[in-house]
């Protein structure tokens, strides 16, 4: 099925994407901390601080608690990092077509997104600490809570594209090539904005950030899921946190702001690639600022039952309204023509 050349290409690009994902992921964590610090009137750590932290964690002792299940405890961080990187292989980065784009679509990405969270749950339960167990239970509840609104977003966007007669509406390639805003009419654009709001709320939950960081909740559970982790294992989780940040922002970028600089301004080939990458990074930082940095400094942490009611009732409802608007938009072709 896959030729040897293609295989070599995929392996090579996987290596490049891995390095890119880790470096940009850590950089994003640094930018996030800097922005949050400035909003709180602090100077904050230098942007390279996550790299320093990572190096420090690597030289720290890797403690495995006595009543932990060692193999799950050690496997969870590696799996979490690996699965987050795999998602990156399905996502367009700048104008570069995803290396595995032809083999999976947004539905697959949605499934893959649950794996890092499941790894954390497994690692938490395997830690053998009551804090980690409570954290793991909360992580599961949170996961169940936000999957529903996330699914609405994905389905609604793809459905609208399919209604517009676009082939393979679930592939990220088509979603990026035909932005929702250019397909939909005014009603659809309002619906799209509502979906964007839902996506912005799902992102901090996926990344376990305030207000949805109940599973780690420093002041309640002392780090919850990660309470027993240290050294290399914690470093792996730290990296996967960075990569996940990039992944979530990249999904939002691919679905909602897929334009590239090269498609707007004509640029020479080599310059266009670099410019697109930088433009992509800018978009990612923008998404991260509004859905992670700003939200996490502007709100108090929710209780776990509140997390569920927020996602199932409020955001679920907003998502459904968005979906209905998109459907109504597709049902009125005239509106689409007008736009």
């Amino acid at each position: 099925m896959i030729g040897s050349w293609e295989l070599a290409f995929i392996v090579l690009s996987a290596i490049i994407v891995t390095i890119y994902g880790i470096v940009v992921g850590l950089f994003l964590l640094g930018v996030d901390r800097k922005l949050a610090a400035h909003m709180q009137a602090r100077v904050g750590p230098p942007i390279r601080q996550p790299f320093i932290d990572f190096r420090k964690l690597l030289i720290k002792e890797n403690v495995i608690p006595e009543n932990a299940i060692p193999w799950i405890f050690n496997l969870a961080p590696v799996m979490s990092l690996a699965s987050s990187i795999v998602i990156l292989l399905y996502l367009p980065i700048g104008s570069i077509y995803p290396p595995l784009g032809a083999y999976g679509d947004l539905i697959l990405v949605m499934y893959l997104l649950t794996i890092p969270a499941l790894c954390m749950v497994a690692g938490g339960f395997a830690s053998g600490s009551p804090y980690a167990s409570v954290g793991a239970q909360r992580e599961m509840v949170t996961m169940i809570a936000y999957e529903f609104p996330l699914a609405i977003v994905v389905v609604a966007v793809a459905w609208r594209l399919a209604a517009a007669g676009i082939q393979d509406p679930f592939t990220l390639g088509s979603i990026a090539a035909y932005p929702l805003w250019s397909v939909a009419g005014p009603l659809g654009i309002i619906g799209g904005l509502l979906l964007l709001l839902v996506m912005a709320a799902v992102t901090p939950a996926e990344l376990s950030r305030i207000p949805f960081d109940t599973q780690e909740a420093e002041t309640e559970l002392a780090g919850g899921l990660l309470v027993e982790y240290s050294g290399k294992n914690l470093a792996m989780f730290y990296l996967s946190q960075g990569v996940k940040t990039l992944v979530m922002a990249a999904i939002a970028v691919a679905v909602f702001i897929p334009w590239n600089l090269s498609s707007i301004v004509t640029l020479p080939e080599g310059v266009a690639l670099v410019a697109d990458l930088l433009f992509f990074l800018g978009k990612v930082i923008l998404v991260m600022f509004f859905s992670v940095s700003l939200v996490r400094v502007a709100m108090a942490r929710f209780q776990i039952n509140r997390v569920v009611s927020v996602f199932w009732m409020y955001l679920g409802l907003i998502g459904l309204v968005g979906l209905l608007l998109l459907m109504a938009d597709a049902a009125l072709p005239a509106a689409g023509v007008l736009a």
Partner: peptide, 16 residues
Amino acid sequence: AAHELGFDSLLHLTWR
């Protein structure tokens, strides 16, 4: 109290 709620910005502002 703000910090206990996970609201660190308010902690920094109040302490300022």
